[in-house]
Simulated assay, not measured.
Amino acid sequence: MTIWKQTYDVAQANAFNKNTIAEPLGLLFTEIGPDYLVGTMPVDKRTHQPMGILHGGASVVLAESLGSFAAHMATNENMACVGLDINANHIRSVRSGLVTGIARPVHIGRRTHVWEIHITDEADKLVCLSRLTMAVIDTI
Rank of each mutant, 00 (worst) to 15 (best):
C128R: 03
G97K: 11
A58K: 07
P34R: 12
H113F: 12
G33S: 14
R111K: 14
H113S: 11
W4L: 07
N87D: 08
G26K: 14
A70Q: 04
A103Y: 14
Y8V: 10
S65V: 02
T30L: 04
A11Y: 00
G56M: 03
V99W: 04
D35I: 05
S130I: 08
T47E: 04
V127G: 01
D138E: 15
S93G: 13
S96N: 09
G83T: 12
T7D: 15
L98N: 06
D44F: 10
G109K: 07
T100I: 13
L25Y: 07
L66M: 08
G52T: 08
S93E: 07
G33I: 15
A70L: 02
W115D: 00
S96I: 00
Q6P: 02
P105W: 08
V60A: 12
I102A: 08
V38E: 10
R131V: 07
D121I: 14
E31S: 14
D124C: 01
P24R: 05
A123P: 03
L54W: 11
T139Y: 00
P105M: 11
V94P: 02
V60C: 13
Y36K: 14
V43H: 10
G39L: 08
M73V: 06
V136C: 01
L25I: 03
N89K: 10
N14P: 04
D121Y: 09
V61F: 14
V61K: 06
H55T: 03
H55L: 06
D9W: 03
L54D: 00
M134Q: 13
G52S: 05
G39F: 04
P50H: 02
G83S: 05
I140M: 01
G26Y: 09
D121P: 02
K45N: 07
T75E: 09
G56Y: 01
A15T: 00
P24T: 09
L28S: 13
R110K: 15
M41Q: 09
I86E: 01
I140Q: 06
G97T: 05
K5P: 01
G109T: 15
D124I: 04
V99K: 02
P50C: 04
E64L: 05
E31L: 12
R111E: 07
T100M: 14
V82A: 14
L25H: 12
T40I: 08
V10M: 11
L132A: 08
L84R: 09
V114C: 05
L37H: 03
V82D: 01
H48L: 10
D44N: 13
S59M: 01
I117R: 06
A103L: 07
G83F: 15
A70S: 12
T40P: 06
V10F: 05
A123S: 14
V94D: 00
V43E: 11
L66S: 07
G52R: 04
T7K: 15
H90F: 03
I102Q: 12
A88C: 14
